[in-house]
Write a protein that binds this DNA or RNA. Structure first.
Lengths: 281, 281
DNA sequence: CGCATGCTGTAATTAAATTACATTCGCGCA
DNA sequence: TGCGCGAATGTAATTTAATTACAGCATGCG
């Protein structure tokens, strides 16, 4: 747990003045780092030694030590800068901004990913008799990527990016199978319908989509990808990158579940790929 | 310029003791943040006021203020942690580690992206009569993603993920066209051959691949994606995420080049997509 | 109701940072 | 070469901040 998150927890067992101090720090951490003991004491309405005791109680050597830790955490905190691409930006500036906004998206996703849903999703995959992936538009390439990663596992996987084929494949599902629906908006009618269709077959449905969306409501488990884009004209779509990282997480968890058995399988895959490589020049 | 980078610059114009101090700080910034003026003065072999003057000279209010800034920068610095997924990790821990290693990959890519190559790449795309994208395996989904993004521009785009179709498409290229070859290793024979084929047609070849690889040598412009993975069994492939971010950067730059003309085009695209959306529940 | 424990504040102490001032060093110029 | 000027450094004093010691008060429990 991070320092600020810990302080923000109002239910933590703390003395009355400790609560007052924590509240002050959480309210404006940036101001605290340049304050003296006395200033913070006045702000929180407590005495100076109480401030000191608060810090030592948190495991720091004293108030200055606490401020140092706070400064470090503040530097890490969102948002560093909200970079908006400008028409007159050079390619290098654009690159920096795109990297930065991607980083921000990932950080956001990291904080909002539900551990319970993740565990359930891994269960779905680990116990699936077969896995079907569906996505359209930008999510089609995410589905194909997921397929590529899941091909490393000894379970039947298929990705469909064609409306008709998707419906055919989903109709053929049955209990024990797992359908993964990928959609950034969660509002693409065709994909929502797939999830509905799948429900009738008894197959489990995992959504990688916007929380609370029509698609999310049709899914047994939802891995949420926050939607907060499309507002700015030139902002790139970082959402599919978040989706891909979620795929990475799922497949990594799955790999751990499979353990040694998988390791042998992967070595075989690798050997079979070797002939496709160019000899060293 | 960051504080530490500035201090590391030994050529900067500074007094003798300022140099000694800068050297001390750069040598072990972590230790400095928990030192007093006196301790640093002793370490650097200067007097306490000199330390203070050094800090104010750098634009800080004093030594404590300087330490605060240093602590903040230290927290930002690479590498935070080198996370390796362990067999006994919980899904939540795996998620944290995958996010972290993705972040590290992106940061690495950000630092190594060549601005000159980027500018050239944007030129290629901006002046292309048509664009063809090729990739196999994991890079196939990257190619499809790039296609999806480039479809927003009024230029013919096609992605091929099939060996035969790729060769046919590339054979049909001519001067003025642009081929984008995507390959993480840069050693997939089939893709290297595509680049060779394209060279004969007069088309421009842009590689998104490992620097110095056989593929890279066949490309007019290379956007480098560092290769430093595959060593650990369970480490996910962050490389395709880097590739996607590079795609984002390219398309964003391209969008800026097109300007208003494109804005109108995008509005049309958006209008045409509306009927695919699910009505709000 | 009273004692005990723990929290809090006042005041004293110690440590740290900053300022004021004196000295030295290095450099240009006679 | 040496004289003087200005910048840079150090010593010592001052101010400010942090910490400790101790006393009082509240809260809870017998």
């Amino acid at each position: 747990m991070t320092l600020l998150a810990e302080l923000a927890d109002t239910r933590a067992k703390r003395s009355k003045s400790a609560h007052k101090l924590a509240a002050c720090v959480v309210r404006d951490p940036g101001a605290i780092v340049s304050m003296s003991t006395a200033a913070l004491a006045r702000l929180a309405g407590v005495s100076e030694p109480t401030v000191h005791r608060f810090c030592t109680g948190l495991g720091f050597k004293g108030f200055p030590d606490f401020k140092l830790a706070l400064a470090g955490e503040l530097a890490l905190r969102e948002p560093r800068i909200a970079p908006d691409v400008e028409p007159e930006d050079t390619p290098a500036q654009v690159a920096a901004k795109v990297f930065e906004s991607t980083r921000a998206s990932l950080n956001n996703a990291r904080q909002h990913l539900d551990p319970g849903a993740l565990r359930d999703a891994v269960d779905y995959l680990a116990n699936a008799r077969s896995i079907v992936l569906c996505g359209l538009g930008a999510s089609a390439s995410v589905a194909l990527d997921a397929q590529h990663k899941l091909l490393r596992f000894p379970v039947p996987v298929a990705a469909y990016t064609d409306l008709i084929n998707q419906r055919m494949a989903v109709t053929g599902l049955s209990s024990g199978d797992c359908l993964i629906c990928i959609s950034y908006t969660g509002r693409t009618t065709a994909v929502v319908e797939l999830a509905e269709l799948a429900a009738d077959t008894g197959a489990r449905v995992l959504g990688i989509t916007a929380p609370g969306s029509p698609l999310a409501r049709q899914c047994g488990v939802v891995l949420a990808v926050e939607s907060a884009e499309d507002t700015e004209r030139y902002t790139p779509m970082s959402s599919r990158i978040v989706q891909l990282v979620i795929i990475d997480i799922l497949t990594t968890c799955l790999a751990l579940r499979h353990g040694d058995e998988l390791t042998r399988h992967l070595q075989k895959v690798k050997r079979n790929l070797a002939p496709t490589r160019h000899p060293e020049a």
